[in-house]
Design a binder for these strands. Sequence first.
DNA 1: ACCTGAACACCGTTCAAGT
DNA 2: ACCTGAACACCGTTCAAGT
Lengths: 190, 190
Amino acid sequence: MASRSAAQTSSTSLDTDAWIDAAFNALAEGGIDAVRIDPLAKKLGVTRGSFYWHFTDRAALHQAMLKEWRKRASYQVGSRIDNRTPAPDERLKQNLALPNSTPRAKRAAAIELAIRLWAQRDTQAARAVKHIDRVRLGYYAKLYGEMGLAPAAARKSAFLFYASLLARAYIVTDGETDVGDDLAGMLSLY
Amino acid sequence: MASRSAAQTSSTSLDTDAWIDAAFNALAEGGIDAVRIDPLAKKLGVTRGSFYWHFTDRAALHQAMLKEWRKRASYQVGSRIDNRTPAPDERLKQNLALPNSTPRAKRAAAIELAIRLWAQRDTQAARAVKHIDRVRLGYYAKLYGEMGLAPAAARKSAFLFYASLLARAYIVTDGETDVGDDLAGMLSLY
DNA sequence: ACCTGAACACCGTTCAAGT
DNA sequence: ACCTGAACACCGTTCAAGT
């Protein structure tokens, strides 16, 4: 990769990224097994055979997707919240208040859920999920630490906080049982 | 191949259940799209065509799986904990202490995760998940209510409790970040 | 009642051939 | 460099035919 010139890098990566982007759309809709070459090719307006110029096989596409997801998920930690909001409790509160019903948020949640299921049978996927979970838990624990909690308590609070975030994305509730944005008080965010 | 002279009702359900059971195994390993008729037939030692005697098509198998999962998941609520443990906080504690690393627990978690992903694109699956979530949240809220919490607080505590349970099944952690069985104190379980 | 076996359509993969 | 088009294997579905 390092041997390529700058001009060549962008010339081929554009089409490869188009494949990966279409693959994430399919992943969000139907899981990893819905990432099928023929439908992707039809959506991109090319034949199946052209796929094998960009990737050696389906597994190579999967690998590229995991690499991309790692990058995005890592980047989002902390940066979703405006950096001009330095107070840790404010940052956590804003994380809780992030809308999870927008198309973008729904797509991201579906992708992540699909990857977590995929991780149950794929070692590479499991490693990516493990890595991201550690990064996020570490970040939340750091914020709780800045709020004055001791390391052990900060880690426990971080776990509860992260669990709540995941649950709000995955649990299917109606209006009655959805406690919505009112969790802050229970998570030591006063 | 057991004798079926006793009850006529079980004459066909035995083979149908064999298909459903094999289908859950496939679901746990590879998601709903891995529930494929040909591999299932091979595992059951029959041809693909025989599937269509028991089910009209793949969708009918999916429907039967959801019905079965609803039944099992509903039955498990509350009954996993010995009924001779009537104290609500003890019941919640024991729920937290349930092993989630046994093959049985891992299989159940994989099945549920697969169904939650499936629910993102299938209305029937979404309804089943919604129903089970309501049943569970209601049960936990009832226990918190018995512990003296007001209805609103009980529902919030139930959500946090349920979120923790789900998270411990879905979050991929290593030894350092896994706070393990030490959540009881944070969930008002003293 | 329950299953086989052949038929057809759909998609993953390969590869020679095109531009 | 990037893609086509044909080929083959695999699996969902149908159905006439077997027991």
